[in-house]
């Protein structure tokens, strides 16, 4: 559990940095759909080109993003092996008990891992070029149709934005608690399933306490500064859309459409 699970904002002056938060979110959801629909080599090549182009335009090195994603290699290997051995027993190359090594399993494992990797790549580009305030504003605009049903979109956007900001903080906190438990003699590297599972449990209650303590402090600070639910609904002027916003949405839509056609 590193503290760089999902990346962090990197200040810059790129086209991506200048785009509206809501535009980036729309593009992200279009690309997300494209990633979910991709299952061919040509599709993954297109996604790679899109990710590489986006990273260059955003001024974030693809190598740096790749390095941080590579830290999750154990997770990728696990999901690849699970799909490889358990997905299908048809036309198996090799079978033993419940394990079946088949071409369909190999294909499924590769596709699932590639999808997760691309998902992480694009989410890092989004988080790396969008400040939490922009994300909140973007979410608020996108959620605004829900206001018709009486849902406080400002408050919902605020909750989601605070949640995103809490993730690296709580992840770091969990890591510290884990290290503290190791110092007290807890073993986290057991060889058996139950040993490893039991070792994760002593972390859970302290993590909850730490999370709720941080939330309590933040709520107190917000109340002290006069934050009220009614104020969560921001007053906005006319939403101005720039050419780069339109271009980004059209390009993301094109990537999504091409994955449907491929």
């Amino acid at each position: 559990m590193g503290n760089d699970i999902m990346g962090q904002y990197i200040a810059g002056d790129s086209v991506f940095h200048k785009m509206r938060g809501s535009t980036k979110l729309i593009c992200f959801f279009l690309i997300l759909t494209a990633v979910i629909l991709t299952d061919s080599a040509a599709g993954f090549f297109l996604l790679f080109m899109t990710a590489a182009g986006s990273a260059i335009l955003a001024g974030i090195g693809l190598r740096n993003i790749g390095k941080s994603i590579a830290r999750l290699k154990l997770f990728f290997i696990t999901i690849f092996l699970m799909n490889l051995f358990f997905f299908s027993s048809e036309q198996a190359w090799w079978s033993f008990w419940i394990f079946h090594l088949s071409p369909a399993g190999l294909e499924q494992g590769t596709v699932v891992v590639m999808r997760v990797v691309f998902l992480l790549l694009f989410s890092r580009i989004l988080i790396g070029t969008t400040t939490p305030a922009e994300l909140t504003g973007g979410l608020e605009i996108l959620l605004s149709p829900l206001g018709v049903f009486g849902i406080s979109t400002g408050e919902t956007a605020m909750i989601l934005s605070v949640a995103v900001q809490f993730i690296p903080i709580l992840s770091k906190e969990a890591d510290q608690i884990r290290k503290a438990q190791i110092a007290r003699g807890a073993e986290f590297e057991g060889r058996h399933f139950w040993e490893r599972a039991k070792s994760a449990l002593p972390v859970v209650i302290p993590v909850f306490l730490a999370a709720f303590r941080r939330a309590d402090e933040l709520a107190l600070a917000m109340e002290a500064r006069g934050y009220r639910k009614e104020k969560a609904q921001r007053k906005r002027g006319r939403i101005s859309i720039h050419l780069c916003d339109v271009q980004a949405i059209v390009l993301s839509g094109a990537v999504c459409m091409s994955q449907i056609l491929l």
């Binding site: 559990m1 699970i5 408050e155 605020m158 909750i159 989601l160 934005s161 605070v162 949640a163 995103v164 809490f166 993730i167 903080i169 709580l170 992840s171 969990a174 884990r178 994760a200 972390v203 859970v204 993590v207 909850f208 999370a211 709720f212 941080r214 939330a215 309590d216 933040l218 709520a219 917000m222 109340e223 934050y227 009220r228 639910k229």
Partner: peptide, 20 residues
């Protein structure tokens, strides 16, 4: 306000806890 922030912390835990 506290309910909102506790909800945010719970959403964050939905991501952090499974990683353990």
């Amino acid at each position: 306000v506290k309910c909102a922030v506790l909800t945010a912390a719970s959403i964050a835990l939905c991501i952090v806890l499974p990683m353990a």
